[in-house]
């Protein structure tokens, strides 16, 4: 089975993170597992997930954050910065 295009996976990942903003903190592995569950193992693999996250972070649509461990979030201004 052919893999889905990386930008399509990136859009799906972005939606997952954006829709659960404030409710759930996503780690890279969480996004990978959720993506495989959503699209099926034959359509998405580990490398494709890495590439999709890289695309989202390099474009600035998502950012890495650190709160005890590292997470991936929609950029926002944090309270401490005020």
């Amino acid at each position: 089975m052919a893999q889905i295009p990386v930008h399509e996976l990136a859009e799906a990942m972005y939606k997952m993170v954006k829709d659960t903003m404030g409710l759930k903190k996503w780690k890279a592995t969480d996004l990978q597992k959720a993506s495989i569950e959503m699209f099926g193992e034959g359509n998405v693999d580990k490398q494709l997930c890495k590439d999709a996250i890289k695309e989202l972070v390099n474009s600035g649509r998502l950012v890495y954050t650190y709160f005890g461990g590292s997470y991936i979030e929609v950029p926002h201004k944090e309270g401490a910065e005020n």
């Binding site: 972070v57 950012v63 954050t65 650190y66 709160f67 979030e73 910065e81």
Partner: peptide
């Protein structure tokens, strides 16, 4: 207090936010 959102574009490590 440490941690948070700071970093440079594309990177997830190397910078530790501190306020």
């Amino acid at each position: 207090k440490h941690g948070g959102i700071v970093g440079v574009m594309g990177y997830g490590g190397g910078i530790i936010g501190r306020y």
